[in-house]
Amino acid sequence: MYIDPHIHCVSRTTDDYINMARAGICAVIEPAFWLGQPRTTSGSFVDYFSMIVGWERFRASMYGISHYCTIGLNSKEANNEKLGEEVMEILPRFICKEKVVAIGEIGYDEQTKLEDRFYREQLELAKELDMVVLVHTPHRDKKRGTYKSMDVAIEHGLPPDKVIIDHNNEETCKEVLDRGFWAGFTIYPRTKMDSRRMVEIVKQYGPERIIVDSSADWGYSDPLAVPRTAELMRKHGISEEVIKMVTYQNALDAYGQSGQFKESDWLNAEKPNQKNSFFKGNGILRGSQLEHLLPSAEDDTIYH
């Protein structure tokens, strides 16, 4: 069983969902982010947030995957001031809904004044509502941006154990862990971090507060990054206990603090079938047989 605690499902295909279910991914968290190009109206945000608390959750459930999300104004689009202000007005309509496990992903892209303003305003909101926060760290000027993200979170009174700092690498990891934050690692086939480097990090730092995710989206990325990394760890002799922590348990503990992310949701979930009212209908199956979509006994690993 795996959790992918960072994946942008709205950009993924039904084939991805099938492969994820077969590979043992039972729960996913979809952080609100940008769409690859900037939105021009706040209405687009309304529909996007609605989609990730509504339809996408339903779509994932058709493949037996429990879907959760985080809601927030991302750093890139925070640079449009008027839009940012409007989105801040919209957030109360979404952030406390069922299965919204954090405010996120928020933080810095170019570390501009506007990014800083909306990051701080959302940290205040998280503090007011006692919510978990998912922080996106910048790709450029990463080290300083990551440290600044943590400084500002502390300045606003967020306890480090309620904050996940994501997209870490070898350079940022130690500081994040030393300061008591959760450290997310996005496994990208070519850029951010690959499975091989991830194995080395786990060997060096151990499994405490380390969380592996795919951040799979509309770009070149891998929705099976979590199970693939787990498999590579196995090949390198890392223990099952450690693998479970970084690909399942730590994510559950970190986001579980929201009260909205419960193991029982997927352990007790009825398998999707035509008689189960939540799944039946002509939703997305279009007459196909569910049995063909679900994991079978032979599919115990993704490497066959």
Binding site: V46, F49, G54, R57, K97, E98, K99
Partner: peptide
């Protein structure tokens, strides 16, 4: 009406 526009399933 605004709440209906952005309701989740149970809402």
């Amino acid at each position: 009406s605004l709440m209906a526009d952005t309701s989740d399933i149970n809402e």
